[in-house]
């Protein structure tokens, strides 16, 4: 299941694109393409173990 902070947007943060791109609601910025594979849990990647942004957010949620 994709990261709950992942969204696809055509514009945000002063940037706009023709096609909606991956956007991280935790970092509040568009996601690099390589990181987007983690956000989407593609291949053997898992945002719960492989993404420091998600993990930092999870830690903050617990504290």
């Amino acid at each position: 299941m994709p990261c709950p902070y992942l969204d696809y947007r055509e514009s945000a943060d002063g940037k706009s694109f023709d096609v909606a791109r991956p956007y991280c609601g935790a970092a509040e910025r568009f996601v690099q393409p390589m990181r987007a594979d983690v956000c989407n849990d593609r291949f053997e990647l898992d945002h719960e173990t492989d993404c420091e942004i998600y993990l930092d957010q999870a830690d903050e949620g617990q504290s």
Partner: peptide, 10 residues
């Protein structure tokens, strides 16, 4: 490249 994209440079 395979890391960044137009979010880094349109």
């Amino acid at each position: 490249g395979g890391i960044h994209g137009k979010e880094a440079n349109p």
